[in-house]
Amino acid sequence: MREKTQRALLTTVLILGAIVMFFPFLWTLSTSFSSGAGLDATPQLIPDQPSFSAYQTLFSELPFARIIVNSLGLAAATAVFQLITSSMAAYAFSRLPFRGRGAVFAVYLATMMIPIQVLIVPLFVQMRDLGLVDTYLGVLLPGVASAFGVFLLRQAMNGVPRELDEAATLDGAGHFRIFGTVVLPLVGPALATLAVFSFMNSWNGFLWPLIILRSAELKTLPLALAGLQGQYTTQWDVMMAGSVVSILPMLAIYLFAQRYVIQGVASSGIK
């Protein structure tokens, strides 16, 4: 009886927590379908007269389709580059013995404690000297490597039995073949986790694109949403429509990859 009571209490707490977490998204979606909604409008979770006018305004008065493509392209490219660089570095730290490996890895991880605000000026100077200001490549380059990604994948690769490497070596395989055909297939959940995290960070990135981009046609989604607040100060339905558009890709990716994310985090030992 006591166990059932505790389970019922825990279930109730989880349901209430889920409602609290879900309510802002429901409010955002509802406001986006409320034509002309503002701060002085009567709060309604279900609009009396649902309308797509906010979405029509969003795509007719702004190059929002181009903005979405910009963000998708940059986020996908960032995810691909981080998967490549992080997996190769993680294999080196996990499988290749060299002097000072632990110290180098510790120093590399220490870079995770440096806030991006500290690096903005030197990064901008580098991009300026390379002639990459106001270019997609200028936005992309600082994010092609990830210390967190290396740590995540190294932890996952450390869980792969070394006996598999030895068996592949006896068959004549080198490090590149072991890396591509033995280790990578066994850390698939960790790779999926890193892909989701890197895509999400690039998709939501605001400060660095704000510093490096100048042209309106190169803007990413967070910059466009920030611009909506100035252009449509009282048109909260338009702002919420933009927020809904920005949420949908991440929601779809998470629903598709949540199983792999949970497996990847669990196998890497991150709590």
Results as ranks from 00 to 15, higher is better:
residue 1 M to L: 13
residue 2 R to V: 15
residue 6 Q to P: 01
residue 6 Q to N: 11
residue 8 A to C: 12
residue 9 L to F: 15
residue 11 T to F: 10
residue 15 I to M: 14
residue 17 G to V: 13
residue 28 T to I: 15
residue 28 T to L: 13
residue 31 T to K: 04
residue 31 T to C: 15
residue 35 S to Y: 09
residue 38 G to S: 13
residue 38 G to E: 09
residue 40 D to Y: 08
residue 43 P to A: 09
residue 46 I to C: 03
residue 49 Q to D: 13
residue 53 S to F: 04
residue 53 S to T: 12
residue 56 Q to E: 15
residue 58 L to P: 02
residue 61 E to D: 00
residue 63 P to E: 07
residue 65 A to F: 11
residue 66 R to P: 05
residue 71 S to G: 12
residue 80 V to C: 11
residue 81 F to S: 12
residue 81 F to K: 03
residue 81 F to I: 10
residue 83 L to A: 06
residue 83 L to T: 11
residue 83 L to K: 00
residue 85 T to Y: 02
residue 86 S to K: 01
residue 90 A to W: 02
residue 92 A to Y: 01
residue 93 F to M: 07
residue 96 L to M: 14
residue 99 R to N: 04
residue 100 G to A: 07
residue 101 R to W: 02
residue 103 A to H: 09
residue 106 A to T: 12
residue 109 L to D: 01
residue 110 A to I: 01
residue 111 T to F: 04
residue 112 M to D: 03
residue 116 I to H: 11
residue 120 I to F: 03
residue 120 I to V: 14
residue 121 V to L: 14
residue 122 P to Y: 08
residue 132 L to G: 02
residue 133 V to H: 03
residue 136 Y to P: 09
residue 143 G to L: 05
residue 145 A to W: 00
residue 155 Q to H: 04
residue 158 N to E: 14
residue 164 L to G: 04
residue 164 L to S: 04
residue 167 A to D: 13
residue 167 A to W: 02
residue 170 L to Y: 07
residue 171 D to T: 10
residue 173 A to H: 08
residue 175 H to C: 11
residue 176 F to I: 15
residue 181 T to A: 15
residue 186 L to P: 00
residue 188 G to Y: 05
residue 190 A to N: 07
residue 195 A to D: 05
residue 200 M to T: 13
residue 203 W to P: 02
residue 205 G to E: 15
residue 205 G to D: 15
residue 205 G to T: 06
residue 207 L to T: 10
residue 211 I to A: 04
residue 214 R to V: 14
residue 214 R to M: 13
residue 216 A to N: 12
residue 217 E to V: 13
residue 218 L to R: 11
residue 221 L to C: 05
residue 222 P to E: 06
residue 223 L to I: 14
residue 226 A to I: 08
residue 228 L to I: 09
residue 228 L to V: 07
residue 229 Q to W: 09
residue 231 Q to H: 01
residue 234 T to D: 14
residue 235 Q to A: 15
residue 236 W to N: 09
residue 244 V to G: 06
residue 244 V to Y: 01
residue 246 S to P: 05
residue 248 L to W: 00
residue 249 P to Q: 03
residue 252 A to P: 00
residue 252 A to T: 09
residue 254 Y to P: 07
residue 260 Y to L: 14
residue 260 Y to N: 14
residue 265 V to F: 08
residue 266 A to Y: 08
residue 268 S to I: 03
residue 268 S to R: 00
